[in-house]
Amino acid sequence: MLLASTLDDISIADAGLTALLGYAVVFAGLISLMIVITLLGKAFSAKKTAAAPAAAAPVAAAPAADAAPAAEPAAPGTAGQLKLHDVPPKTAAMLMAIVADETGKPLNELRFTSIKEVK
Protein backbone atom coordinates (compact mmCIF):
# COMPACT_ATOMS: atom_id res chain seq x y z
CA MET A 1 0.00 0.00 0.00
CA LEU A 2 1.56 3.28 -1.08
CA LEU A 3 0.42 5.53 1.73
CA ALA A 4 1.46 2.94 4.28
CA SER A 5 5.02 3.21 3.05
CA THR A 6 5.21 6.99 3.03
CA LEU A 7 7.89 6.95 5.64
CA ASP A 8 11.30 8.49 5.27
CA ASP A 9 12.93 5.23 4.14
CA ILE A 10 11.03 4.92 0.92
CA SER A 11 11.79 2.08 -1.46
CA ILE A 12 12.69 2.81 -5.08
CA ALA A 13 9.50 1.17 -6.33
CA ASP A 14 7.39 3.26 -3.97
CA ALA A 15 9.31 6.38 -4.98
CA GLY A 16 8.54 5.68 -8.64
CA LEU A 17 4.89 5.11 -7.83
CA THR A 18 4.73 8.27 -5.69
CA ALA A 19 6.31 10.29 -8.52
CA LEU A 20 3.81 9.00 -11.07
CA LEU A 21 0.89 9.51 -8.70
CA GLY A 22 2.08 13.03 -7.86
CA TYR A 23 2.38 13.99 -11.52
CA ALA A 24 -1.08 12.55 -12.15
CA VAL A 25 -2.54 14.49 -9.19
CA VAL A 26 -1.06 17.76 -10.52
CA PHE A 27 -2.59 17.05 -13.94
CA ALA A 28 -5.93 16.06 -12.43
CA GLY A 29 -6.02 19.19 -10.27
CA LEU A 30 -5.16 21.55 -13.10
CA ILE A 31 -7.43 19.82 -15.63
CA SER A 32 -10.32 20.16 -13.18
CA LEU A 33 -9.43 23.81 -12.69
CA MET A 34 -9.25 24.25 -16.47
CA ILE A 35 -12.77 22.86 -16.84
CA VAL A 36 -14.08 25.18 -14.12
CA ILE A 37 -12.39 28.24 -15.68
CA THR A 38 -13.60 27.29 -19.17
CA LEU A 39 -17.16 27.02 -17.90
CA LEU A 40 -16.80 30.36 -16.12
CA GLY A 41 -15.48 31.96 -19.31
CA LYS A 42 -18.31 30.46 -21.38
CA ALA A 43 -20.88 31.75 -18.89
CA PHE A 44 -19.45 35.26 -19.15
CA SER A 45 -19.23 35.14 -22.95
CA ALA A 46 -22.85 33.98 -23.15
CA LYS A 47 -23.90 36.77 -20.80
CA LYS A 48 -22.02 39.31 -22.92
CA THR A 49 -23.53 38.14 -26.23
CA ALA A 50 -27.00 38.15 -24.66
CA ALA A 51 -26.46 41.72 -23.47
CA ALA A 52 -25.13 42.95 -26.83
CA PRO A 53 -28.41 42.76 -28.89
CA ALA A 54 -30.28 44.38 -26.02
CA ALA A 55 -27.86 47.30 -26.04
CA ALA A 56 -27.97 47.54 -29.84
CA ALA A 57 -31.78 47.79 -29.96
CA PRO A 58 -32.11 51.48 -28.91
CA VAL A 59 -29.44 52.43 -31.45
CA ALA A 60 -31.45 50.76 -34.21
CA ALA A 61 -34.52 52.69 -33.14
CA ALA A 62 -32.75 56.09 -33.46
CA PRO A 63 -33.69 58.31 -36.45
CA ALA A 64 -31.98 57.25 -39.63
CA ALA A 65 -30.72 60.80 -40.30
CA ASP A 66 -28.58 60.76 -37.15
CA ALA A 67 -27.16 57.37 -37.82
CA ALA A 68 -23.55 57.19 -38.94
CA PRO A 69 -22.58 54.57 -41.52
CA ALA A 70 -22.81 51.21 -39.73
CA ALA A 71 -19.44 49.89 -38.65
CA GLU A 72 -18.47 46.24 -38.90
CA PRO A 73 -19.57 44.68 -35.56
CA ALA A 74 -16.64 43.55 -33.46
CA ALA A 75 -16.34 39.91 -32.51
CA PRO A 76 -17.43 39.18 -28.92
CA GLY A 77 -14.63 39.72 -26.43
CA THR A 78 -12.30 41.60 -28.78
CA ALA A 79 -10.89 45.03 -28.03
CA GLY A 80 -12.07 46.30 -31.43
CA GLN A 81 -10.12 47.47 -34.46
CA LEU A 82 -6.76 49.21 -34.27
CA LYS A 83 -6.16 51.70 -37.08
CA LEU A 84 -2.57 52.08 -38.19
CA HIS A 85 -1.58 55.21 -40.13
CA ASP A 86 1.82 54.81 -41.82
CA VAL A 87 2.95 52.51 -39.01
CA PRO A 88 4.05 48.93 -39.74
CA PRO A 89 2.40 46.27 -37.52
CA LYS A 90 5.73 45.32 -35.95
CA THR A 91 6.39 48.90 -34.80
CA ALA A 92 2.81 49.15 -33.53
CA ALA A 93 3.26 45.99 -31.48
CA MET A 94 6.48 47.35 -30.02
CA LEU A 95 4.81 50.65 -29.13
CA MET A 96 1.93 48.87 -27.42
CA ALA A 97 4.36 46.73 -25.45
CA ILE A 98 6.29 49.84 -24.37
CA VAL A 99 3.08 51.62 -23.28
CA ALA A 100 2.04 48.53 -21.30
CA ASP A 101 5.45 48.36 -19.66
CA GLU A 102 5.60 52.07 -18.84
CA THR A 103 2.06 52.22 -17.44
CA GLY A 104 2.49 48.95 -15.58
CA LYS A 105 -0.79 47.65 -17.01
CA PRO A 106 -1.16 44.34 -18.89
CA LEU A 107 -1.84 44.63 -22.61
CA ASN A 108 -5.27 43.06 -22.34
CA GLU A 109 -6.37 45.90 -20.06
CA LEU A 110 -5.35 48.60 -22.52
CA ARG A 111 -7.24 49.57 -25.64
CA PHE A 112 -5.47 51.16 -28.57
CA THR A 113 -7.75 52.70 -31.19
CA SER A 114 -5.21 54.13 -33.62
CA ILE A 115 -1.50 54.68 -33.96
CA LYS A 116 -0.28 57.45 -36.26
CA GLU A 117 3.25 58.52 -37.13
CA VAL A 118 3.74 62.25 -36.47
CA LYS A 119 5.80 63.65 -39.35
Binding site: A15, A19, V26, L30, I37, P106
Partner: peptide, 27 residues
Protein backbone atom coordinates in the same frame (compact mmCIF):
# COMPACT_ATOMS: atom_id res chain seq x y z
CA UNK B 1 -2.19 39.15 -13.80
CA UNK B 2 -4.09 35.91 -14.31
CA UNK B 3 -5.82 37.39 -17.39
CA UNK B 4 -3.76 35.40 -19.92
CA UNK B 5 -4.59 32.19 -18.05
CA UNK B 6 -8.30 33.03 -17.91
CA UNK B 7 -8.39 33.88 -21.60
CA UNK B 8 -6.71 30.59 -22.47
CA UNK B 9 -7.44 28.01 -19.72
CA UNK B 10 -5.61 25.29 -21.70
CA UNK B 11 -2.43 26.97 -20.44
CA UNK B 12 -3.03 25.09 -17.21
CA UNK B 13 -2.09 21.86 -18.98
CA UNK B 14 1.33 23.31 -19.76
CA UNK B 15 1.72 24.38 -16.14
CA UNK B 16 1.00 20.79 -15.15
CA UNK B 17 3.31 19.25 -17.76
CA UNK B 18 6.15 21.45 -16.55
CA UNK B 19 6.05 19.85 -13.09
CA UNK B 20 7.72 16.75 -14.58
CA UNK B 21 11.10 17.81 -13.20
CA UNK B 22 9.72 17.93 -9.66
CA UNK B 23 8.79 14.28 -9.65
CA UNK B 24 11.73 13.11 -11.76
CA UNK B 25 14.17 14.84 -9.40
CA UNK B 26 12.30 13.39 -6.42
CA UNK B 27 12.80 9.92 -7.88
Amino acid sequence: DFGPLLSNPKSLLLGAAAQMGVFAAFF
